[in-house]
């Protein structure tokens, strides 16, 4: 539960704040009003629609060799997974998968560090802060494909080769960083400035304050930024399309498969990438829980 609280940042914080008055949830102090049932039904339908299609392709990816893109299942097999990693027809899945993970790792590290520093800077007003803020918003909302092509052309004009670890890295950062900084804003808004002053009062240098006070306190929020950085990069398509050079990343590979491949290996790929996504979510949320647990354990010894 604690992990969820931290991962959700402001939402959870607000929720926690309102917990003390949960008894006061107004419309429905006496029994549930009819709106509750209507909304609960809508919510349930939404969740079913959210997960239903995904679950169906996970099931279909275990389709028998005779089976097609739709139900019914003609039997269970791992044929399409095998197909995915062996067939030339489906392209370089393994290589692109490899690149995507490496790229996402790079993007994650850079996003966490840069967003953290920007978050520190944005805690107070300074000359030009609004310009930078809108620059970030602009970078966030600009059409990704247009920026990707601009980046590709820029590299071309400068006589540089586009590659996934240069131009695509930068193009993805222009999308993950504004996101990361916005998350950082929400995380920072819960940081009490008095902690920093107390550290200074006790003789900590600015660097010691960051290392011993700010980073440990914000750690769960930083993990959340990392989680954003990783998944946004791992799924990024539009900005990467024209900047990745001659070698594909995984979403680009999937894209070309959707245009060429009409077999359940497409679903198998979906299943594999989703497993990776869930692993990353698990690692992210797990490490947040671990941080919280360790803190709680530090406290438990005194009981």
């Amino acid at each position: 539960m604690t992990m969820a609280k931290e991962a959700l940042g402001p939402a959870a914080a607000a929720r926690r704040r309102s917990r003390s008055r949960q008894g006061a949830l107004a419309p429905g102090r006496k029994g549930r009003p009819w709106t509750f049932y209507v909304l609960a039904a809508i919510f349930t339908l939404y969740v079913v629609a959210l997960y239903g299609p995904m679950i169906s392709i996970y099931i279909l990816s275990f389709q028998d060799i005779r089976g097609g893109l739709v139900f019914p299942m003609k039997g269970l097999s791992l044929h399409w997974f095998n197909d995915l990693f062996t067939q030339v027809r489906t392209g370089d899945v393994k290589g692109s998968f490899d690149r995507s993970i490496k790229l996402a790792g790079l993007v994650t590290v850079i996003t966490v560090v840069v967003s953290f520093l920007a978050g520190l800077a944005f805690r107070r007003r300074f000359f030009g802060d609004t310009v930078i803020f809108y620059l970030m918003i602009g970078s966030l909302v600009a059409p990704g494909l247009v920026l990707g092509i601009g980046t590709g052309l820029l590299f071309n004009w400068l006589g540089l080769e586009t590659a996934w670890y240069t131009s695509a890295l930068g193009a993805q950062l222009s999308w993950t960083l504004p996101f990361g900084v916005l998350v950082m804003f929400a995380v920072m808004s819960r940081f009490n400035k008095a902690w920093e002053e107390a550290a200074r009062d006790l003789g900590a240098t600015p660097w010691q304050t960051i290392r011993l006070v700010i980073i440990p306190i914000l750690a769960p929020g930083l993990v959340a930024v990392a989680l954003f950085g990783f998944t946004l990069s791992y799924d990024e398509f539009a900005r990467t399309l024209q900047t990745s050079g001659s070698l594909n990343t995984l979403p680009l590979e999937i894209w070309s498969m959707t245009l060429n491949v009409t077999s359940p290996s497409l679903y198998a790929l979906g299943t594999v990438t989703t497993i990776v996504s869930f692993l990353i979510i698990g690692i992210g949320l797990g490490s947040i829980t671990l941080i919280q647990k360790r803190r709680a354990r530090g406290g438990a010894a005194g009981h």
Binding site: G203, A204, T205, I217, G302
Partner: peptide
Amino acid sequence: ALFPHLTVRDNIAFALRV
């Protein structure tokens, strides 16, 4: 403004640590 991530001992020892 006690440091929420540090125990009582570590809070008190903070000035000595730095």
